[in-house]
Design a protein around this nucleic acid. Structure first.
Lengths: 239, 239
DNA sequence: TGTCGATCAATTGTCGACAATAGGTCGACA
DNA sequence: TGTCGACCTATTGTCGACAATTGATCGACA
């Protein structure tokens, strides 16, 4: 490490583990730390300039969030993105997205609408900036604002966890989305959802949420279907 | 503390935090450790006979599970049972129960059915034993066997977290249930669910799951409605 | 060449000490 | 009597050291 990152955290105690947690969380969500990558305490201790205790505490908290995997006497790893589980992920996201968006259409206040609209403005700005981490972060913030309007913390927490996994999946194929979608990234769908919530149209909100999940799924499947490699003629295999 | 509980854990390292985690987890779920109760590291260190590090690690893991609340520089507390949120909890449990039970009816194998049936046998035995912790534990295990048959780990994890909270709520009113239900505790409903899953009757499984949630809700609301106090005549308030 | 046991180094889990924090108590003052 | 500041104590957060674990390497042997 060329230099230590000894973050001067604002606020008092717990500045150790929290600063480590925040940085690692961001790095994992943005795929700066790749799925499966090793996170050993000694390296992190040298990198952040804290002793191993706050490092360990940050890692345990990240494990609680599902972002890393810790096993006894083993080096912690960044949680792998399990593509085989993608269909299960999509099914769960669909449920969470539909329930939270329905609840928002049912229970929203004027203040909620304002917050959702502001989150969408931030999202559109992030799209313009080209900053992938900001894009995935403001997308999540938009959906969290909707979930907040739905007023069920259990459903919201479930949704948040799924959205975080979705952020990592998004980062796997941002380049692809930008090339094939003129960088649009589903902004129209967000606007439609806002309209349905404003109109208290629960069924429409549900349908839009469902379509939103399907779009996300189809984007990723298209990405997986893509063949990046140059055409290489290996000849016809002999049987 | 009259004597130390220095548990001789099987297996190697991580025996420190894990044994603390297991004991505290059980105590919290059974309400032996009451909601809101303080868990200070020094006392736990003396109680379990470990230094504070594994205690802290266990507490951070318990916080990740939602069983305790840790804040910087504050003594950790057992997560309160928030009765105001009970309706939100029931709505979320309803979704999770229905989705997992539907999926089980759709995707179950013969091995799944066997596992579910065995879990129900354990549950019935626990009812007979009168051991509240075993009753709530085997009830959870029954529903987890169903969720396993549904094959969506995201929905299963969500359900598990809700069932754990439900265990604590169950422990709040076990005596009441036993007095008013002849200790039956919904065993017939479990059998009906097994039948629907065996028959791959997805819609019936869904309905039964929904009724199961409603029954749980109604039991608890009846319990809250009960007046335990002896009748005390304070006279008619003067306006 | 493959297998096994011994050794070593780098990690992880825990220990106890030190420093920082927060709440309670006490005395002074208005 | 209520408020404020100083002091004290018991906690929490972090430190660095020690012991345990694990994987890699090496040498011996068949």
């Amino acid at each position: 490490m060329a230099g230590q990152v000894r973050t001067m955290a604002t606020g008092g105690r717990a500045a150790g583990w929290k600063s480590v947690y925040d940085v690692l969380s961001k790095d994992i969500l943005s795929l700066t730390l790749a799925p499966g990558e090793l996170l050993d305490e000694m390296s992190l201790s040298r990198r952040f300039g804290f002793s191993r205790s706050p490092i360990r505490e940050a890692l345990i908290r990240l494990a609680g969030d599902g972002l890393v995997v810790t096993l006894p006497n083993r080096t912690t790893i960044v949680t792998p993105v399990d593509i085989v589980q993608f269909p299960k992920y999509v099914d769960a996201l669909d449920i969470a997205q539909r329930v939270n968006t329905r609840l928002a259409a049912e229970l929203r206040t004027e203040a909620d609408l304002k917050a959702i609209a502001e989150a969408q403005v931030d999202f559109v700005a992030a799209i313009g900036s080209g900053d992938h981490l900001a894009m995935s972060g403001t997308n999540k913030a938009f959906h969290m604002a909707i979930a907040r309007a739905g007023r069920n913390s259990y459903m919201m927490n479930f949704y948040e966890r799924l959205l975080d996994e979705g952020r990592r999946i998004l980062h796997l194929h941002f380049d692809y989305i930008e090339r094939t979608r003129d960088g649009r990234l589903l902004t129209d769908e967000h606007e439609d959802m806002i309209d349905a919530i404003r109109a208290r149209d629960v069924e429409r909100a549900d349908r839009l949420a469902h379509m939103h999940t399907r779009q996300f799924r189809d984007n990723f499947l298209d990405f997986l279907r893509m063949n990046y490699a140059s055409s290489v003629d290996l000849g016809t295999p002999r049987s």
